[in-house]
């Protein structure tokens, strides 16, 4: 266990007192630093957006916290068996997936979550950028070490898609749909993107990183003009801000619950939940498989998660990669 940073210790002291007051003396004792150093920590917290009042003879009182994703706040009372066992929350990352993969290579434990307030080069598919401004959205990567063979691992994509949909429903009441295999749509506009990475040998998965980006409070003017798809955020769709902290906690709990189901029962219940969320079963779709266009009726998912499309010739095509859209 690493020693918690001073500001995490101070915030946890605030959360432990019923009246919200913590004396400067108590903080200085807990941290083992001078009163002057305590004052500097308080000043830093205020600069980070915390409203902290100093009341003579009673101490400091935390009146309002900014919507930041502090590991302690996420973990406090979190109902997870595995996911979030360790949470790393960064002000900025190149990409949370890159950081999670790096930590995975270094042997980080199953269930690690890496979160960044903003990403300088958020990863999209095939080198595309995922727009990642600070303070508004969630960018998270979850490291898992599933005891399965590499060819099983792509199924986890459906697991994170279902978890994101459930967290959105929990926090907004809105019911998103999924586009094969993993795009999350609200009224036809993309609200979340998932990108998973795996490190494996022929017969063993070292780790899988589930990359999840969800547009929570992003405003219209923050979206780049040249997006490939119409995009939205939960705040745009609902007209009000969503708590990043509440969303993150909900997402991790849904992921954890689904992952436990996956480990115990396999992918069948996960695929069933995904199929229910997909509005396209039985409808006409067009799939762009790297410049090869396949048109037909979407049948559903194969045992391995492939998209099954019945073409006009009556043949069922199994698709493993491509962009699918309704015709």
């Amino acid at each position: 266990m690493k020693t918690p940073a001073p500001r995490e210790t101070i915030l946890s002291l605030f959360s432990q007192t019923p009246d919200g007051f913590v004396s400067g003396e108590r903080i200085s004792n807990e941290l083992g630093v001078s009163r002057t150093a305590v004052w500097k920590h308080i000043r830093n917290l205020r600069q980070a957006g915390y409203q902290i009042e100093a009341i003579p003879s009673r101490g400091y009182q935390l009146q309002q916290s900014p919507d930041v994703l502090m590991p302690e706040a996420i973990q406090s009372g979190l109902e997870c068996q595995l996911v979030g066992s360790r949470i790393l929350s960064l002000d900025e990352a190149d990409s949370t997936n890159l950081q999670a993969c790096r930590l995975g290579d270094e042997g980080a434990d199953d269930g690690l979550v890496v979160i960044a307030d903003r990403q300088s080069s958020g990863k999209g598919r095939l080198g595309r950028q995922w727009e990642s401004p600070g303070g508004v959205n969630l960018y998270a990567s979850i490291l898992l070490r599933p005891p399965v063979l590499p060819f099983e691992a792509p199924k986890l994509t459906f697991l994170s898609a279902v978890a994101v949909c459930r967290a959105i429903k929990n926090c907004t009441g809105l019911q998103p749909t999924v586009k094969w295999p993993n795009d999350i749509l609200l009224n036809g506009a993309k609200v979340a993107g998932l990108l998973n990475e795996m490190s494996s040998e022929t017969d063993q998965v070292h780790y899988v990183v589930l990359g999840i980006g969800v547009n929570l409070n992003m405003r219209l003017e923050q979206f780049p003009d040249e997006l490939r798809y119409p995009a939205t955020s939960l705040a745009i769709a609902t007209g009000k801000a969503v708590s990043r902290l509440a969303f993150t906690r909900s997402l991790l709990q849904e992921l954890d619950a689904l992952y436990q189901i996956y480990l115990e029962q396999g992918s069948v219940p996960i695929f069933a939940a995904w199929t229910e969320l997909c509005g396209l079963t039985g409808k006409e779709v067009q799939v762009d498989c790297n410049n090869l266009l396949i048109e037909g009726t979407m049948v559903g998912l194969g045992d391995d998660g492939a998209l099954l499309v019945r073409t006009s010739a009556g043949k069922i095509e199994s698709i493993y990669a491509g962009d699918v859209r309704p015709v």
Partner: peptide, 27 residues
């Protein structure tokens, strides 16, 4: 890539590439 999961295939030993057996983007 399968279903938005990207698997980086690594060489398991030091070697020289003699021939690439698949086209880029091929299934």
């Amino acid at each position: 890539e399968a279903m938005k999961l990207f698997n980086e295939i690594e060489a398991e030993f030091k070697c020289k590439i003699i021939e690439i057996l698949k086209q880029d983007a091929a299934p």
